[in-house]
Simulated assay, not measured.
Amino acid sequence: MAQFAVIGLGRFGVTACLELSKQGHTVCAADISESTVNHYADQLSFTVVVDASDETQLARLDLPSCQAVLVAIGENIEASILCVLHLKNLGVKQIWVKACTKSHHQILSKLGVDRIIHPEEEMGVRVAQALNYPMVNQYFPLNQSTFIVELGIDLQLSGRKIGWLLKERNSDIKPLTLRRDDYFNTELTNDTELRHGDSLVLLGSKTYLTKLAKRFRAL
Rank of each mutant, 00 (worst) to 15 (best):
L63E: 02
C100F: 13
Q67N: 11
A16W: 02
R179H: 05
D181S: 08
C66M: 13
Y183N: 13
L202K: 03
Q43C: 03
L131T: 14
V125F: 06
H104F: 02
G24D: 10
N132D: 13
S199Y: 12
G10A: 10
S145D: 15
A68Y: 09
Y139F: 12
L9Y: 00
A2T: 10
I153E: 00
W164I: 04
H118V: 00
L166P: 02
H118A: 09
N190P: 02
T177Y: 02
T189F: 04
L157A: 10
H118C: 05
K88A: 08
V84E: 01
R126W: 06
K174Q: 13
C83F: 13
I73Q: 00
E150W: 04
T186W: 04
L165S: 01
H118F: 08
I162K: 07
D42C: 07
D54P: 00
S53K: 12
S33I: 06
R115T: 09
A130L: 05
Q23H: 12
R180G: 04
C28R: 03
R195A: 11
N170H: 13
A2Q: 13
L155A: 11
I162S: 07
L70V: 11
V27S: 02
N137D: 06
P64K: 01
R169E: 10
R215A: 07
N143R: 09
G163H: 14
Q94N: 15
I148A: 03
L188K: 06
H86C: 09
L212K: 02
G13N: 06
R169M: 04
Y133N: 15
K161N: 12
Q129D: 12
H86E: 06
C17I: 05
V37N: 07
V149G: 02
G204I: 00
H196Q: 14
D51M: 10
L70P: 02
A213I: 04
L151F: 11
L157R: 10
V6C: 03
Q144N: 14
I95S: 00
L9G: 01
A2R: 11
L61G: 08
Y133T: 13
V92D: 00
V149R: 00
Y40E: 13
L209Y: 08
D182H: 07
Y139D: 05
V37M: 06
L142Q: 09
Q3I: 08
D31Q: 10
Y208S: 01
D62R: 15
C17Y: 00
S205M: 09
L200G: 02
K22P: 00
N170C: 13
L85F: 09
S171T: 06
L18Y: 00
T56I: 06
L82M: 15
T56D: 15
G152S: 09
I7W: 01
Y139H: 12
L166E: 03
R179F: 04
L87K: 05
T47D: 05
S103A: 15
A2K: 15
K98L: 08
